[in-house]
Design a protein around this nucleic acid. Structure first.
Lengths: 119, 119
DNA sequence: CCATTATTTGAACATTTGCTCAAAAAGAGA
DNA sequence: TCTCTTTTTGAGCAAATGTTCAAATAATGG
């Protein structure tokens, strides 16, 4: 007897056509992977707090954020980098200080939706 | 001289009142941490695909999902467990087969919003 | 009660993540 | 140019995450 593989079940109930259709839908939606990567940015308490604070402020520097969140400037800066890399936030320099703000984009729209439903 | 701490900067420009106000806002919004935990569920490609497939299907079993996604049943089951633990999905048993579907709740609302804006 | 089908579970492992610490970079004023 | 302030960066490390594999659980039909 062929040993039962974990790859797929031998089902009576299986609707092969339905599965094929789903497989195609998944292939069409190749934006799901980058979307997951973007959502992961909001899926961490530190970053979500940063994003929330930026959403209720015009702009803030690393220093402000670290102060308010009770964290190291370095720790916050590392997180800001990830947000910057994905263009979730924009920056503006004023002397030695760098001010961050939310950048228009898909995640910011999602955040707007999020922060207004449980306010 | 006191060594420069990373905890907070000595700024000319700092608006202590503004920071205090932000600190209070952060304390009030203690739902940010559980929200981040919930968003983290969608912040992973495997799980986002599961959620997407469930959102366009009435219900699916682990087997279906593993088949469609080209993954091990076990790997999918482990992810389903996380979604189940957070009540993002519900299940229904029919003989030996367990069918999963999206459960009404905050993440499902967010997903509805997500999947309709980039369709 | 045994075999079959579908699923879950736990240990193990490699990878990724988030933070700390020390050092580097960068603008502005003396 | 030296110093001060703010910020970023990279190495290092502990904790969390995602997958695999083998074993356990559970319902059903002989």
């Amino acid at each position: 007897m062929k040993p039962l593989t974990q790859e797929s079940c031998i089902r009576q109930e299986v609707d092969v056509k339905k599965l094929q259709r789903l497989r195609e839908q998944l292939l069409q939606h190749n934006e799901l992977e980058p979307l997951a990567d973007l959502l992961a940015m909001a899926g961490n308490a530190t970053r979500l707090k940063i994003l929330y604070l930026l959403s209720i402020s015009k702009e803030l520097c690393v220093c402000d954020l670290a102060d308010v969140m009770g964290m190291t400037v370095s720790a916050v800066s590392h997180q800001l980098r990830k947000l910057r890399d994905r263009k979730v936030i924009e920056q503006r320099r004023e002397g030695p200080t760098i001010y961050y703000r939310l950048a228009p984009g898909p995640l910011t729209e999602i955040l707007q939706f999020l922060f207004q439903i449980d306010d």
